[in-house]
Design a protein around this nucleic acid. Sequence first.
DNA 1: ACAATAGGCAAGTCACGGCTTGCCTACAAT
DNA 2: ATTGTAGGCAAGCCGTGACTTGCCTATTGT
Lengths: 99, 99
Amino acid sequence: MVRVGDLFQALADRTRRLILDELTERDGQTLFEICGRLATRHQVGSSRQAISQHLDVLEAAGLIVTRRQGRYKFHHLDTRPLRSITERWLRSEPTEETP
Amino acid sequence: MVRVGDLFQALADRTRRLILDELTERDGQTLFEICGRLATRHQVGSSRQAISQHLDVLEAAGLIVTRRQGRYKFHHLDTRPLRSITERWLRSEPTEETP
DNA sequence: ACAATAGGCAAGTCACGGCTTGCCTACAAT
DNA sequence: ATTGTAGGCAAGCCGTGACTTGCCTATTGT
């Protein structure tokens, strides 16, 4: 079960938002591909392990799903959790938060 | 002016989301009203200063606007920054898996 | 078999965010 | 004028998050 708090916290980091941008443009990338594109296109100089930890956070938030194939691990975007995340404050009746 | 990072970071905190919930239900509350309702309805035991700092963050993110009147300071919700914040990743996505 | 590639695990550093404490200003009521 | 109410300012504590470093496992290529 993915909590709404994990979702917002995952989106609170700029590097993670850039990762989602990259996967939006080209879905199913590996860790090394994401590292390369972040470095060359967004000047993100973080280490591979840092990006890997970001991917873990995004996966725990339910925003990406992973698929292993041989020694490759492909990361796929899942934007379904984002669909109605702000409706809580845009609708007339707020949704309760369950801790 | 208001960066998108500030917006997500403001939403990353549970207490701040609860503040938005409270203002959604009853707009234009003062700091003390918000403190009281957070305590009685959501078991938030933070101090008044903590809530005040949360309100500063929300205002800096453009999610609330304040209006001073005498010794009261009323807080009003502004959900406009939330409207299109997730469209960045939802643009060219499959809408639903409905057959 | 051996090396290169893709990725994982764990400990440690460091800065920032959330929160408190203490004191202060401004307005209102009596 | 004095007291109480609504809010602000600033310093400090402390836990958590982002990141690095070092080493390890697994799969692929030659």
